[in-house]
Nucleic acid binder design. Structure first.
Length: 589
RNA sequence: GGCCUCGUGGUGUAGCGGUCUAACAUGCCACCCUGUCACGGUGGAGAUCGUGGGUUCAAAUCCCAUCGAGGUCGCCA
């Protein structure tokens, strides 16, 4: 070892000891004959002091040292003078008086300041990710990530779950996200697919009798990126046999609660986790992943405004749409410009516009106020619980647009008004997802989930009658603060039912046999009832770390165009590689 | 694929038709300084304003295209 201690561990207890520290030069303060250096490693920062009158050689070395030089310091631990303590540092009561100093490696001027949070273009951070990762924030996030995954492994193991690895080179599955493909050298013209999730394999592990399975599983999907979506991401993949939906929820809820307590004790959760049906979530929040840290709930005012003179509202209702509103406290004084911006926000959620009424002591004001009778106005204010000074924001449109528009507005107001407690992790279960959703373009009911998801037993009759609209899936999501953190379901374990679901897919019987024949066959050999779920680790960590984008909790993430700016991937293959893989590349003009 | 935001010394910002021979902060270099911890002081170097066209007597500034980053809709069973 080149060092005896780390930069985070020395205390007055070690005063008088000779120690050797190594680390990066975080900051220096040069007084000529006296130089202070903050030496940094991932454990902390320790102040080194060198005096030219007592250690001229060490002083000469450290006079040369600059930011991010890698140093080795041999010196004596000394309690700092009373007025020289630094209460901001855990090591702030001591300093190391350098006797010898060595530059293990110099550094060019780095393109990022390591010692201070900057506001750099993210492309620069990604290009020099190894420097970005030196910074305190990223070190904290990456360490928290390790602790989280370690906690999960221990917790699941203690409850009898086995971590079982599944292959990265898999077969392409036809539905779902776009696959990442890997060409086969031994099988010209054939490809592996990287897993979108180990879904089929974990179900086959249930058939194999590994009744409690988990895996910290990497998943890849070749879809467009978002703040909470990377081309590869990590899931806690879970599957259990001989259980029902309730058993899965009763496993994950304490896992999350105890994880929060262990890893981010400054944060708190709602206990027990609230449960909402999908229908309820959409009605009250306009979202299947509502942020429950604040109110601003959606209120249906269709009945009140149906007789009004406001054609936009009555027309929307006549077309089978909805009129809903939220009450925003204290925003009644919005200017015309601010009110216009709200329509812009509503548009990002798919609605055409937002209308508003300001509540004043004397009555309501706003461009649409004239369309309502005094009775209608009073009913609106009362139904929404409006107080003077409040702003009522309405969206009238088809059901989806109303939900989307008000969801966006709700989030925007919560942000502006600072309504969300940053230390609250408002976990909640959303249950009873619909089994099918209407494709507005084709008018056909499509399966909303993967084809292994069981129908809610209470709705089997409906399904048999082919009344698809109200059929619920035995599917559930864990949501938190506006993010979908996990999605799961009870699976089909009956060959006949599974066959019927597959038959609904737009594939020929031959294709279904080729793609899913192994699943159908496995179900003929004693498949146990089973269910599972898969929390997204990256999103959990983003919430733990107060980051609003998962790149900040991934060591080496990719850009929105799915590139790695440091390693330069993707990149062209050589002629030789292509030849071996039997590939001919044609780049479109 | 659509829409929106951003791109100016190493880094972050200002400047938004002429006063720009581009400003400020920080970092960097040199010198001074024995108790700092965002040390302080003095001096200095460092940018053809992402790229390419165009408009104009004149472009960092206006227009078009393009490249790059981010956000979002579509997409993500």
């Amino acid at each position: 070892m080149l060092r005896t201690h780390t930069c985070g561990e020395l205390r007055p207890l070690q005063a008088g000891e000779q120690v050797t520290l190594t680390g990066w030069l975080n900051r220096r303060r040069d007084f000529g004959t006296l130089i202070f250096i903050d030496l940094r490693d991932r454990y902390g920062i320790t102040q080194v002091v060198v005096d030219s009158t007592t250690s001229p050689e060490a002083h000469a070395v450290l006079a040369e040292a600059r930011s991010e030089y890698v140093l080795k310091i041999v010196g004596m631990v000394r309690v700092r003078p009373e007025d020289g303590r630094n209460t901001n540092l855990p090591t702030g009561e001591i300093e190391v008086v350098a006797q010898q100093a060595e530059i293990l490696n110099p550094s060019k001027q780095p393109p990022l300041y390591i010692a201070k949070e900057g506001n750099e273009d993210e492309a620069l951070r990604l290009k020099y990710r190894y420097l970005d990762l030196r910074r305190a924030r990223m070190q904290r996030n990456i360490i928290l990530r390790h602790q989280t995954i370690k906690f999960i492994r221990d917790w699941m193991s203690a409850r009898g779950f086995l971590e079982i690895e599944t292959p990265m080179l898999m077969a392409s599955t036809p539905e779902g996200a776009r696959d990442y493909l890997v060409p086969s050298r031994l099988h010209p013209g054939e490809f592996y697919a990287l897993p979108q999730s180990p879904q089929q394999l974990k179900q086959l592990l249930m058939v194999a009798g590994f009744d409690k399975y988990f895996q910290i599983a990497r998943c890849m999907r070749d879809e467009d990126l978002r703040a909470d979506r990377q081309p590869e991401f990590t899931q806690l993949d879970i599957e259990m046999s001989f259980v029902e939906q309730e058993d899965v929820l009763q496993l994950v809820e304490p896992l999350m609660t105890e994880l929060v307590a262990a890893i981010v004790p400054q944060k708190h959760v709602l206990s027990p986790f609230p449960r909402l049906t999908y229908y309820e979530a959409m009605e009250r929040f306009g979202s299947d992943k509502p942020d429950l840290r604040y109110g601003l709930e959606l209120v249906n005012v269709g009945e009140i405004v149906s007789e009004s003179q406001f054609v936009v509202f009555t027309q929307a209702l006549a077309n089978g749409g909805q009129v809903k509103a939220i009450r925003v406290p204290g925003c009644g004084n919005y200017t015309r410009k601010q009110l216009d911006e709200l329509s812009e926000v509503a548009r990002t959620g798919g609605a055409k516009a937002a209308a508003t009424l300001s509540i004043e002591a004397a009555g309501v004001k706003g461009s649409i106020a004239k369309f309502f009778t005094p009775e209608q106005t009073a009913a609106l204010v009362e139904t929404l619980g409006g107080e003077p000074g409040d702003l009522l924001v309405f969206v009238a449109d088809n059901k989806d647009a109303v939900a989307g528009g008000l969801d966006k507005l709700r989030r925007e107001f919560a942000r502006r008004l600072n309504l969300a407690d940053p230390d609250l992790l408002a976990f909640a279960w959303v249950v009873d997802f619909p089994m099918f959703e209407l494709n507005h373009e084709t008018g056909v009911w499509d399966a909303q989930h993967h084809p292994f998801c069981m129908v809610n037993p209470a709705d089997v009759e409906k399904l048999n009658r082919n009344e698809l609209e109200g059929v619920r899936a035995a599917a559930y999501d864990l949501v938190c603060n506006g993010y979908e953190l996990a999605s799961g379901s009870v699976r089909i374990h009956d060959r006949a039912i599974q066959q019927r679901i597959f038959d609904r897919l737009p594939y020929t019987p031959g294709e279904i046999q080729r793609r899913f024949g192994h699943m159908l066959e496995a179900f003929e050999y004693g498949a146990p009832p089973h269910a599972g779920i898969a929390p997204g680790i990256d999103r959990v960590l983003a919430l733990f770390c107060d980051e609003d984008n998962i790149r900040e909790v991934i060591a080496f993430p990719k850009t929105q165009r799915a590139e790695d700016l440091m390693m330069h991937s993707p990149s062209p293959a050589t002629e030789k590689q292509l030849r071996e893989l039997h590939l001919d590349v044609k780049v479109e003009a």
